[in-house]
Design a protein around this nucleic acid. Structure first.
Lengths: 164, 164
DNA sequence: ATATCACATGTGACTTCTCACATGTTAAGG
DNA sequence: CCTTAACATGTGAGAAGTCACATGTGATAT
């Protein structure tokens, strides 16, 4: 059900088509909550059926742009207000739990990979940050970007300690 | 498939029954990778079928204790060596992305809840840390605990900034 | 013109996950 | 003894997520 609200949240920011949404989930943002192309269209149909979104525009090549409805807005805020599920699924963290089962060389290799990934993400996030500031348009994602930056800095710190 | 290795990893630390494993996944550790009771038994049957684990002991009330086999050890290390999937599923982080869709009061409420949760987790983790140090037995989980502590400290920092 | 590629959505089979319920066994207390 | 609670595993239905493939359309470059 969480993915449903991820899609609804994106549509609350601006109207988009299924194709656009697939793009959102397959790039930088996919890191926070992944979604196969398939699911996106399925959920759009469901959201449409329950009246949370509506067809805003029909374009070329069968393109359908959806926009959030007032009902959808309400549903999104209601979800935000509900107590969160604090369980996490993050493979690198699970691997850390069992790392000691592997020889030191492998442990260092794993930490190195995590470090590289954290660096690439941090670079992208910081670039997005400065670009948003330069553009000066209001930025709905600043809270999240801050959180994700802190998150990868934590990974970075851990990985550095572990590589040594 | 990740859950399979979570179970295999736990059995690599010490032999356990399905019931024991269910307990592992429903307390502190569940926070890293959740598993319904149901799945645990199903995966145990699968692991047994592929020879990654074996029956180590049969106890009262139908209790079956499983232990990892050399093949299982190999499979675990092979999994550790594979490139990680860096996609994350963590609802609080997703909510942060769409937070600005909610009024400031609600935003503060969400951040407060995250802060409280981070605090409770940090307290538990630090307690486990000092206990392990006092006991002095070798600690397979120290890397992971360090990572999780850094993670919750990041959450804590973000939540504090956001509550203000 | 027409070939090619990016755009755009869809279907079906399969695995994993979740929820709810069902069943039998031993330990422990009154 | 006998009830109760914790121990221990299991089944089945349905939702959500994954993988691979299929289909059609419009832009653009040769």
């Amino acid at each position: 059900m969480t993915l449903k609200f991820a899609i609804l949240g994106l549509l609350a920011e601006k109207p988009m088509s299924g194709f656009d949404l697939v793009g959102e989930f397959s790039t930088a943002r996919s890191v926070i909550w992944p979604a196969p192309q398939n699911e996106v269209y399925k959920i759009l149909r469901a959201l449409l059926a329950e009246g949370a979104i509506k067809v805003a525009e029909r374009g070329a090549r069968g393109r359908v742009v959806y926009a959030i409805t007032p009902d959808g807005q309400k549903a999104l805020v209601a979800w935000l207000g509900e107590p969160s599920d604090y369980t996490m699924r993050y493979e690198p963290m699970l691997k850390a739990v069992f790392m000691r089962q592997a020889p030191p060389t492998l442990r260092r290799k794993i930490a190195k990979a995590d470090l590289d990934f954290a660096h690439s993400q941090l670079a992208a996030l910081r670039k997005a940050d400065t670009e948003h500031k330069r553009a000066g348009n209001r930025d709905n994602r600043q809270d999240a970007r801050r959180l994700v930056i802190l998150f990868y800095e934590a990974i970075e710190k851990w990985a550095k300690e572990t590589v040594e």
